[in-house]
Simulated assay, not measured.
Amino acid sequence: MVGLATIQTLLFDMDGVFCHYDFRYHLTLLEEWTGVSAAEIDERIFKSGFEDAANRGHYGGDAYIDEIARLLQFPIDAETWLLARAQAMTPYPKTAAIARRLKDHYPMALLSNNGWLLRENISRILPELPEIFERRLFFSAETGASKEKASSFAPLINMLGWQAGTTWLIDVNPVNISAASEAGLQTYHFSGPIAFTTDLIHLGLD
C-alpha cells in the first residue's frame, strides 16, 4: 500500500513505462540485417551474461558494439544496433505527459537497466526523457548495478539526497519491484499509461 502522506520523490523505469519495448521484434530486425538467427543472437548476447555485464557498466559504448560484432561474427556498427533498438520501441506519449505534470510537484528521476551505448544516445531515441528528467536521468551502467538487486538503490538514493522510505518506484518488472521493496522504497507495478492515470487520481497524486 502506498503511503500517500510520505511520498516525496518519484523514481521511474524506462522500458515498459515510457515506451513499449518489443524485444522479439528487436531480435527479428537484427536477424534480418545480420543473417544471424534471432535464437543465436538471443543466446550469444542476451542469455550469455554479456548484456547483463554491459548493463552494469562493464563495457563502454565502443567496446560494447565491438564485442557484439565479435560474438555475432558480423561487422555490425553502433548505428545499426541503435536503429534496431529504436524501431523496437514505441513511445507512450501519455506517460510523458503525466510525468511533466508530476514534475511540478515532486522531484523525479529515472533509472533504467541498460548500458552505455543506449545511455549515450537516448536523446536521439527518446528525446522526451532528457527534457523531463534533465540531470536525473540514470542508467544502470552509470550506477554499476541493475535494479534486480536491492543493494542497487541506496547509492542512487543517497546521491540524490532522497530517502528510500519516501521514494516511489514506478516499474514494470516484478523482480525490480521486489528488490526495491526490500531496499525500503514504496513501489508501483506499472501496467500502462491509462491505468497509471486512473491510479494516480485514486491515490490523490495527480
Rank of each mutant, 00 (worst) to 15 (best):
I125W: 04
F74K: 01
A63I: 02
G60D: 11
A195T: 15
E51T: 09
Y106H: 12
D77V: 04
P75C: 02
S123G: 14
W81A: 02
S152C: 08
L11I: 04
R136Q: 12
H105N: 14
L156G: 00
A5P: 02
I45W: 03
L129F: 08
P130E: 14
K103A: 15
G57S: 05
L29G: 02
T143N: 12
F23T: 06
C19Y: 06
D62H: 02
E43H: 12
F133E: 06
G204E: 09
T90R: 14
M1W: 07
K47S: 11
E128H: 01
I132K: 05
L30G: 07
S112W: 08
F74Y: 08
A69P: 07
N173C: 06
R70L: 08
M108P: 08
I177A: 10
N114T: 15
P75V: 02
L160C: 06
S191Y: 10
D206C: 08
R119Y: 15
S152F: 06
G144F: 03
T167H: 00
G161R: 05
N173G: 10
W81P: 00
V36S: 00
S191F: 12
D206Y: 10
L111I: 13
G184S: 10
G49N: 09
M14A: 13
R70A: 06
I201K: 06
L83H: 09
I41R: 06
A150S: 05
I65L: 03
D62K: 02
N55G: 10
H105T: 11
A179N: 12
I68L: 05
I7T: 13
P75S: 01
L29M: 07
A195K: 15
A150V: 01
I194G: 15
T198H: 14
M108T: 09
N173Y: 02
D13H: 07
A97Q: 14
L83W: 06
P75T: 05
S146D: 08
L185V: 14
N121H: 15
L30C: 03
I45K: 09
S191C: 13
G60Q: 01
I7L: 10
F196D: 04
L205G: 03
T95L: 08
S48Q: 10
S178K: 14
T143H: 14
W162N: 04
D62T: 12
L117N: 02
L111G: 06
F46G: 04
S151Q: 12
E43D: 12
S37Q: 07
E131Q: 11
V36F: 02
K47Q: 15
G144R: 00
